[in-house]
Every structure is written in C-alpha cells, then in structure tokens.
Design a protein around this nucleic acid. Structure first.
Lengths: 185, 185
DNA sequence: CTTGACGTGAACAGATCTGTTCACTTAACC
DNA sequence: GGTTAAGTGAACAGATCTGTTCACGTCAAG
C-alpha cells in the first residue's frame, strides 16, 4: 500500500479510537496526517470507505496476534484455549485501549443492514472460529463449538467491561470463568 | 415531567437507538416529536443534556424491570440469580432491540472523563449491585461479589453478541454458562 | 382580567460536515 | 527530455450541525 494511504488509515485508526467515528471529521484526519483532501478521495470513495479500510486492517492485526498467541501457548505447554485472555489482558493494560473497534463501530452504525455493521459481525464470527480452532483440548466437535460461542461471549463481555468501566482486570475475570468451564467439562 | 419534555426524551430515545447519538441531529428529533427548538433549549441546556436525560430514564426503567423480575423469580421458586437472563432473552427477541444504550453511548463518547461515558460506567456498576443483590442463594459475601462481577460480564457479553451479530439466542447462551457457575460452586 | 408559564415558528449565526474541482508541483522512469 | 503517477493547496458547493433570539400565540389560575 502507498505511504500516504497507509498514513491516512493509521491516523484515522487512532482518531476513531480516541473520539469515535462520527465525532472524527475528515478535516481532522487530514490535518493530523498532513495529507491533502484530494489524495484522500483518490484512495477512498467516501469516509465510510476509509472506516472500512481501518476496520479491515485492524481485523488482520487481531487475527494475527491471537493466532500467534495460541501457537505460542501450544508450544510452551500452556492452554491454547485460554491464550486469548492473555492477549486481552495485555491490551487492556496498555496505554491505548479504547474498546473494540468493531463493537464501537457496530454501536455507531446501528442499522443491521449497514455495511460497517455487517463487517463487525463478520469479524466477530471470525474471532469465534479462531477461538474454536484454539480449543484443541476438547475432542467433541459440538462441545467445542458451544464452548467457542461461550468464550467469544466472555471476550466481548470483558472488552466492554474494561472500556465502559475502566476495569483493567476484566480479562482475568473472564479468564477465571473460562478456566472453570474448561476444568469442569 | 411536562408533556413536551417527556415527548422529546421518548423521541430522542427511539432515534438514538435506531441511528446512534451523533448520527441523530437535533432537527430530526424536533421534526419527529413535533416540538419547537426553543422548547427543547428551554428544557435542556444542550444536546448532551438531552442524551443524559434519555440515559437516566432508561436507567430507571432497567433497574425497575430487573428488580421486578428478581422479585417474581423469588416468589415463584425459580432462581433469582438467573432471572436477569430471562429479562435479556425477552429484550433480545423484541422488535426494538438496538443493543444497550449505555454501551453504545460509551462507545460514542469514548473519552474516559466525558460525563456521558461516566454515566454509563455508573449504570453498569448499579447493574452489578443489583445482580449481587439477586444472588441470595450464595451466603458467602466475597463469593457473591465475585459471581456478581462475572454475571455482569456475561450480561454485557450477551448484549454485545445479540447486537453486533444479531444473535437472538445470546441470552440463553449466557444463562447456560451462569447456571453452570451456580451449580458448580 | 391580568399574569405567568408554556409553547410556536421562523429567521439567524457560525461552525462544521462530506465531497468536488483545478491549476500547479514533485519525482521517478523510460 | 518527455511522460506519467502521485500529491498539494485552495477554493468551492451544499448540506447539516448546535444553539440563540424574538415576536407572537394559548390557556389556566388567582
């Protein structure tokens, strides 16, 4: 991707996180990225198009980060099914945590049919698949799918709790619950 | 409360739900409620003030509805701790479900110090207290508090799942998990 | 009958929003 | 040296945003 285009996406990503999607105007993204308006509209057809590009990039980042954590857990003998909660924990404690881009976008673009709303749904479905893939410890397929759904719900719950309430320990709370589910089975 | 003021809050509540907070302009609220702009600014100092009034009303509604459900569960011998998930289930299956106003507002007014963001945090804290109060089945106080935290996380996870993915069964998924937690203890 | 609370409608201010257009520059490449 | 792609800066359009102001209605209570 071209330098300017990438720069726009990165700046937009930061501003969307810090202030929300509608509250962040094109002009501010341009000012802070130092890119001209004509260039933006050469790369993106609309602001929504830029939002989608930001979300796509974030999606790739997350899939990669979680996939890697699962892999590392497996290699070091820790539970791969619980690895995602350690990723969350690190995320929540970082300086730049503003909740999940997809949950936030879903809230702002509330209509079910909206392209951005649908993108968020697809992301969450992909996350659930990734979680299911990490639950190698469970041999039974139906049981694994059910637990992946529940873990995915725990992940979203932890993110929302961390964001709305500023509870940095939300990941550990969810992890404890998830661990009990795994043991108990 | 005056008729006009109440009408404004009700209309704003509906539009904020359907389209989000920033995406809903004052003019639209006025047009659909049939109230004049001067009246709005007589009752509310700003749009944010109207948002806050909407959220306060919703807060009262929810506290009352859940309190009632817990009470009824207790009377009819069902588990009061799980009653909240039945409230969620009914909510998710209704025609007018657009996620949690507070989670959505928290996303749009992302800054931690923002008054609306803080209001959402307070609401979630109150919900957790209500949940804890419903967990009469658990005698140990520390254990009850921990489980209230976890149940609160499950509630938020279910709401987000239902909203972003359109999964109407999210409440049952969370309830199943919660029930296991209660049994296992 | 007057007062005061409540409300209307419309104009206005001033900012900000997304998106378009165009003449000009820069720099790499054949 | 000429071509081409990428970008700039600035003006512009037209809509929409929040918020203010003011002259004018309506109506119930004292």
């Amino acid at each position: 991707m071209q330098i300017r285009k990438q720069h726009l996406v990165d700046t937009a990503y930061r501003l969307f996180n810090e202030h929300g999607y509608h509250a962040t105007g094109i002009d501010r993204i341009l000012a802070e990225s130092g890119v001209s308006k004509a260039t933006l509209y050469k790369h993106f057809r609309s602001k929504d198009d830029l939002v989608i590009a930001v979300l796509r990039q974030r999606h790739e980042q997350l899939i990669q980060a979680i996939g890697k954590a699962v892999e590392q857990a497996r290699e070091s003998g820790r539970s791969p099914g619980l690895a995602i909660f350690d990723v969350l924990d690190e995320w929540f404690r970082g300086d730049h945590f503003f909740g999940c881009n997809f949950i936030n976008a879903s809230a702002e673009y509330a209509e079910e049919g909206n392209a951005i709303h649908r993108l968020a749904a697809e992301h969450k479905a992909a996350m659930q698949d990734l979680i299911e893939h990490g639950l190698v410890e469970i041999p039974n397929r139906r049981q694994r799918q059910l637990m992946a759904k529940q873990f995915s719900l725990l992940v979203d719950g932890a993110i929302v709790r961390a964001h709305t309430r500023g509870d940095r320990d939300a990941a550990q709370l969810a992890k404890k619950l998830a661990a009990q589910m795994l043991c108990q089975r």
